[in-house]
């Protein structure tokens, strides 16, 4: 059987094929061809779409260009969530490539945060790391890090380093400490997609019960969103998806946190309606 480290590699090297098309109402000087790209699941849309932007800017008048944003079937895509999470939540049961619409006008301020530069993404990413560290290790790891360590971590993500490589390059073993299994709580975020609304629930969850048994994904769901646990008749209303897969409910939360957390150190779980067929 494969090694658990292979799981980390699969998670960090996961790619989603995407087809970007320009929104039909954008004014162009000539026809805009679609643009095809492999997107890293663990990165952020606005961080990895420079090529998309350049491609479409070639056919647009500079006066018609405002801040770029992305949409999937009418839903603006929040750049501050990892790409893999957005895909699992909105498009996991659809045909590939993922069809994303590109906009340069009418920025939906009520739905999206502005992203004028990569430094905004960096600030968001580092803030998520700090939050996760505060919850998991009472801030013990991030407090020890210097500015250059923060930069190194950010550059690692930006340049597509995998988890193993970050462990190797980080001075003082900060990345190793951040993802260390010696944590008090798992930081799980459940994104629930139903037909009526799309809430998310952030949950701190002890990986081990008071009597020493490992808590499982099923335990977490029973506590936070019981409807996602199949009923006695075996009927499954929801799919519970992490990085494009559906782990069994018996999977320990500790193991999931160590192996299927995103680089922001959160375990993002998508709960989506099960296909009806």
């Amino acid at each position: 059987m494969a090694d658990d480290k292979d799981v980390l590699r699969d998670v960090w090297f996961g790619r989603i094929p995407a087809c970007f098309t320009l929104y039909q109402d954008e004014i162009t000087e000539r026809e805009a061809e679609p643009f095809y790209l492999l997107l890293p699941r663990v990165s952020y849309l606005t961080l990895v779409t420079d090529k998309v932007k350049k491609h479409f800017l070639k056919v647009m008048k500079p006066d018609d260009v405002e801040e770029i944003w992305f949409e999937y079937e009418g839903t603006p895509l929040k750049w501050h969530y990892p790409i893999g999470l957005l895909f699992d939540l909105y498009a996991s049961n659809t045909a590939l490539p993922w069809s994303i619409t590109v906009h340069f006008k009418n920025f939906p301020q009520q739905d999206l945060l502005h992203c004028p530069s990569n430094s905004v993404i960096e600030a968001h990413f580092m803030s998520s790391i700090k939050e996760a560290d505060a919850l998991k290790h009472k801030g013990a790891v991030v407090n020890e890090m210097q500015k250059k360590d923060h930069k190194q971590l950010w550059m690692g993500l930006q340049n597509g380093l995998c988890c193993d490589e970050l462990c190797l390059v980080q001075r003082g073993g900060f990345w190793t400490a951040l993802i260390s299994s010696l944590f008090r709580h798992s930081c799980a975020t459940l994104f629930i997609s139903t037909t009526s609304n799309r809430p998310f629930i952030q949950k701190l969850f002890r990986p081990v019960s008071l009597d020493g048994h490992p808590h499982t994904l099923g335990d977490l769901l029973k506590e936070v969103f019981p409807a996602a646990v199949p009923q006695n008749d075996g009927q499954k209303k929801y799919q519970v998806v992490i990085h494009g897969i559906e782990p069994m409910l018996e999977t320990p939360i500790q193991w999931l946190s160590e192996h299927l957390s995103y680089p922001d150190n959160f375990l993002h779980i998508s709960i989506i309606p099960a296909p009806s067929d």
Partner: peptide, 14 residues
């Protein structure tokens, strides 16, 4: 499913 048929696509980050 997500990569084998799409290896000819350009990578977003090299």
């Amino acid at each position: 499913r997500e990569m084998d048929n799409f290896r000819h696509y350009e990578q977003a980050i090299e």
